[in-house]
Design a protein around this nucleic acid. Structure first.
Lengths: 147, 147
DNA sequence: AAAATAATGAAGCATAGGCTACATTTATTA
DNA sequence: TAATAAATGTAGCCTATGCTTCATTATTTT
């Protein structure tokens, strides 16, 4: 089979690797978003978010949760002191709020389209992390129009 | 702060870790789906899928692509011989076709809702892997109704 | 056909997110 | 208050997916 040589085929502009780089970045952000939202939920529900509860809800062992929290702290989204609960910084709380709002919108759009509510909740959990601001804006407009 | 003790609070049924386990599994599947679809594209376009082209399009170095292909082979989705191109097994080709069809539907739904085509293509790339069969079915019904 | 170029393979390292096992600290309870 | 139970911390290992570097094999080109 011929190799590319000096005049070899070039990558089509519409299919640059950027497409996949996005996916990898989004995946990293997804975990962050999930943890932050969960911490926010726990604080709202119990007044604090503890490693054991976080681990249990995420479905990992506590050392794994500890590592994740350490990452959030590195990123300035959470804070904690030894043997005490985990708290969100202002940045973390703001992120949690954005995530929560986006989640609601994604679910509402899916339901509006005809997806059963329960399925919508499950799928939104994975999909929401890949919804760009532009798409979110379109979703909001769609819901407004529908209402 | 009080610990759980013998009568500690229990996890709410609606928020079982399953939610997160799903996300982790989906993420693993996503890469598989992307590679399989890409190989299918390359074969359709050039008659063969070569490591170098796969790597370039995915945006990784060739050893990384080689590892990914090795995984596909382990999973029975692809085949290859040293210094030759990569091919899909029947299972791999079938998966590629399903992925392609789902991608189209997700993009079409986003566009129908009012998302700009280009944005829809980008976001669909990430979202599609989390669209369950149930949601896909609802998407199809929605598009039929719209048409 | 030899030399140069392109593609593939293989080895070794890094990082992220999992886990288990064990040490330590805090909170309950006897 | 001492003993027990629960929660947290720490260390070390595993797997997956990246990377760089270097060796090898194919293909082009001279």
């Amino acid at each position: 089979m011929p190799r590319q040589g000096k005049e070899g085929r070039k990558i089509d502009g519409a299919r640059l690797p950027e497409r996949f780089g996005r996916a990898r970045a989004a995946q990293a952000m997804a975990l962050t978003e999930d943890y932050v939202e969960l911490i926010s939920d726990l604080i709202a529900e119990f007044g604090e978010a503890r490693i054991a509860d976080i681990a249990q809800r995420v479905g990992v062992t506590h050392p794994t949760a500890t590592k994740a929290i350490a990452r959030l702290k590195r990123e300035g989204l959470a804070s904690s002191r030894p043997y005490r609960g985990v708290f969100l910084t202002d940045a973390g709380a703001a992120l949690a709020e954005r995530v929560r709002a986006r989640h609601r919108i994604v679910v509402d759009v899916l339901v509006a389209i005809g997806v059963p509510r329960e399925t919508a909740e499950l799928d939104a959990e994975g999909m929401e992390h890949h919804v760009s601001d532009a798409t979110l804006k379109a979703f909001k407009a769609y819901l407004r129009k529908k209402a």
